[in-house]
Design a protein around this nucleic acid. Structure first.
Lengths: 340, 340
DNA sequence: CATCATAACTAAATCGGTTTAGTTATGTGG
DNA sequence: CCACATAACTAAACCGATTTAGTTATGATG
């Protein structure tokens, strides 16, 4: 089964490449190609399974019907869900998605942005490392369509779709406080990320509202590079004297998993001795022992809205929709923080 | 910051496009471009941040340094992990990966294959719906490089990397038998997939080896489209009289999650009343109540080997490595099947 | 009947690279 | 000093589409 090209069709049917191209791009009518000719072309193309070479198409049109999605890590369930929904939504609007993982490395991220631009993507959705302000600003300058998700640059005015990290974190911390917990630890990544900073702030202000003294020792900030090890130390320090926390807030699902594994290894009873809650969840968190109270992020909404904003902008319907969104998260109460 | 093109560089430096192209592709020496000229070009390109347009490059070379990965669903943690490892490995070998999800739809899958070919991918890694034999055969005919992963077409001779589903399933079933379980249910998807068929066969033969009568009623085959609902019925039928199973083998991690959720809703004690085991696991399965005994698939190996085979073939080092692999899975024993 | 509009097309430029098949200038051996 | 090799380049074709700026034939209009 040989590949057919535009010129093959043209030659076989004794028409010009132009005619074939126009017809197959649904521009036959507006260019007054006769119905017979159109039918002839379409039939032939169908019969021979013609599909245009996207590279040639993209090159000559300067377009590609493709958007890029840059995320820190496709293996992380949070981002893989986003990728799934973005792909679905984009496809429904006629776009293909190019994924790539930055591995939380700003340099790689900026390479990816460039590489995607070379591939003529028409827009980008980026869950940024948040250490590429320059690159982002330059996209903005070039008026290149993009939407930040999950993480944004508060110092720069861009499209973004994020969740309300502050309130999500505050709410879940308050939940612990209402249940009578007083010594609440907080395990998080070093706040290079605004999202993480907001989660920390939410935690702090919840304490404040309950007139509980904020203690620096109860906050454990892990370096993003090898937190696997650090978290073990962090957990053990929190549960021991003099900290002896009665509960821990974990700022990502991954930290929660690893942390809980540690708590179990130390034979700490959860939630009796130490209650835990998680910002963001894993699909099995309701099955875990104990089921983990989590702040659930509206993954589907984030994805859909981001794609909508982006394609809206690509297709030039300026300003027609709200292009900065802060979505609410949902507190799913389970047994890991005890009950009323 | 304006984009620079090849011809801009050529014009500015008073050399030909050819020279620039050759030099930037590391073919300066073999084409006897003088060192000065080379340096001049390289310096200018670096200073002005030149990056070649991949579409143009791909179009003219008929290559793209890109491979395609087609999986059923990027949101599924099994496939998202594969995607992550494939991306990593491919990048380390100089290739970019184009992902896409087929949603388990053969028609979509065959569209994706075509669409990827149009994008000039140089090879494909496919976790096929296994209902596209024709498409696969035609790839083979065209001598287009591809590797099947996770699912292969036993009736067709191709490259593939899969796990030993039969033995994995047999082993885990035997494990239940050794623990004295006798009425073992099996919940699976309708075996359109060879992998699933093998898992079922493993289960059956384990029973046979233990002289336990194989009962059709204990096997529940769900339709892949709305198993969410069907599984609830399946679980309830299995645990009730006259089936009253003492254990269940779930054939995918997703079925395990949903199934366990159902068991809990029925207040069935796991593993005391019904032991469960899972083929394939979720990252939190060790934290679940009870921790779930699982057959763990070597996701990283699958990915790495598939990429190696593929790129080996793309780069024409024919036959130098073994191109059909059946990898062993690992039985991770946890508490969901009771203990010795 | 000359003019103009319109229908129905097409030739050729273009996108931004790669690659083939030269060309020119210089040096070397006989 | 001529023939030839070699170094150091370059013009132009090409990849497979899209798109601009025409062209031709026909029919209507005044």
């Amino acid at each position: 089964m040989k590949k057919v090209f535009l010129k093959d069709i043209a030659k076989k049917l004794n028409v010009s490449k132009t005619a074939v191209s126009l017809v197959l791009n649904n521009k036959g009518d507006e260019n007054k190609i006769s119905q017979e000719t159109q039918k002839k072309i379409i039939d032939y193309a169908k019969k021979h399974n013609y599909v245009p070479n996207q590279l040639a198409r993209g090159l000559s049109r300067g377009k590609s019907e493709t958007i890029g999605l840059i995320i820190p890590n496709i293996s992380d369930s949070f981002y893989s869900k986003i990728a799934g929904y973005v792909e679905l939504k984009a496809k429904s609007l006629g776009y293909t998605v190019l994924f790539s993982s930055s591995s939380e490395d700003p340099k790689k991220e900026s390479e990816l942005i460039r590489s995607m631009l070379n591939r003529q993507v028409e827009g980008l959705i980026i869950a940024s490392t948040q250490r590429n302000l320059k690159e982002i600003e330059s996209l903005k300058e070039d008026k290149f369509p993009f939407v930040l998700i999950d993480r944004h640059y508060p110092e720069s005015e861009t499209n973004y779709v994020i969740v309300d990290n502050y309130n999500g974190s505050k709410t879940v911390t308050e939940h612990l406080l209402k249940l009578g917990r007083q010594k609440i630890g907080f395990i998080t990544l070093k706040p290079g990320l605004e999202a993480i900073r907001q989660r920390m702030l939410g935690y702090e202000n919840a304490l404040k509202d309950f007139d509980i003294e904020f203690k620096k020792e109860l906050i454990k900030e892990l370096s993003p590079v090898n937190y696997e090890d650090e978290i073990k130390l962090a957990v053990s320090e929190l549960i021991k004297f003099p900290n002896s926390v009665d509960s821990i807030v974990f700022s990502t699902h991954y930290l929660t998993s690893v942390g809980l594994r540690e708590l179990k290894r130390f034979n700490v009873k959860v939630p009796q001795e130490v209650a835990i809650v998680s910002f963001d969840e894993l699909s099995a968190f309701d099955l875990v022992d104990p089921p983990i109270t989590s702040v659930i992020q509206p993954v589907k909404d984030i994805s859909n809205i981001a794609v909508e904003i982006l394609i809206n902008e690509i297709e030039g319907m300026k300003e027609s929709i709200d292009n900065t969104r802060i979505l609410d998260s949902k507190l799913e109460i389970r047994k890991s923080c005890g009950t009323f």
